[in-house]
Write a protein that binds this DNA or RNA. Sequence first.
DNA 1: AAAGTTCATGCAACCGGATTGCAAACTTAG
DNA 2: CTAAGTTTGCAATCCGGTTGCATGAACTTT
Lengths: 137, 137
Amino acid sequence: MKKDIDNKLQSKNIKPTAMRQLVLQVLTEQNTAINLHDLELKFDRADKVTLYRTLRTFEENQLIHRIDDGTGAVKYALCQEKCNCHPEDLHVHFLCTKCNQTYCLNDIPVPTINLPNSFSLESVNMVVKGVCSNCKL
Amino acid sequence: MKKDIDNKLQSKNIKPTAMRQLVLQVLTEQNTAINLHDLELKFDRADKVTLYRTLRTFEENQLIHRIDDGTGAVKYALCQEKCNCHPEDLHVHFLCTKCNQTYCLNDIPVPTINLPNSFSLESVNMVVKGVCSNCKL
DNA sequence: AAAGTTCATGCAACCGGATTGCAAACTTAG
DNA sequence: CTAAGTTTGCAATCCGGTTGCATGAACTTT
Ligand SMILES: [Mn+2]
Ligand SMILES: [Mn+2]
Ligand SMILES: [Zn+2]
Ligand SMILES: [Zn+2]
């Protein structure tokens, strides 16, 4: 619903322009992460740079998080409600090698690692590759 | 030692050309992963494409493994003796946010993940970011 | 040894994703 | 309304990775 979209933007201190509403709409309907190119395809006529900057704004304001799954193009997905993109909020991502879709495994937290002495931890990127349930059929 | 280099190449079925000897030399002396650009800088006069293809050959023959640490350029490091680049051989990598060096944490295996039902696992990429012991001083 | 085959190298060009510069359009405050 | 700030669109650029092609070295066959 339109109001929800606007509220979400407002709550993250993002001015709800037309473009941003549309992009957030798409991201909300999406259940896998999406990259800039594929986002562009969701619109008949939209400037890639504007989409790029929209995503950047969303990311800066922690509405979405970036996922580098090694496919070459960075993907984005909505953050969870409570997420602050801190190390403890991090979850595992899954890249399907058949359909190339990337899933947020929101309820699988990144396992803790015992780093060697005098290495300190800031964040973790964990991407699991395999075949997703859709492609398993 | 020169002989060791050649033997290593031979053992992986890689013809020991001059270039390959030199590159393997550099990789052996290195204790962090290196990307194509930095490898190029290690030589006064070397063609980037040749280095690129040398790395590719090394990777194909499992002499080295690629590390995508999210810095934009793929890094490479020597494989362990017994490594066959199978899922069970995978280890964690560490990227220092200060010096940008990437370390192979060879004795930290990638933790096992309980994937959702009907997702199958092929491989895992786990990169930990933080500050390395060198930069901690 | 000459000719033929295979593989490695060097150079130029291309590709695709990410990013920047800049001016026009729009929004908001006074 | 006007001025200042923000967002948008278009063109251009950057940068890592990759390919095509011609030359050169090494190895085989006759
Ligand atoms: Mn996610
Ligand atoms: Mn490694
Ligand atoms: Zn799939
Ligand atoms: Zn460091």
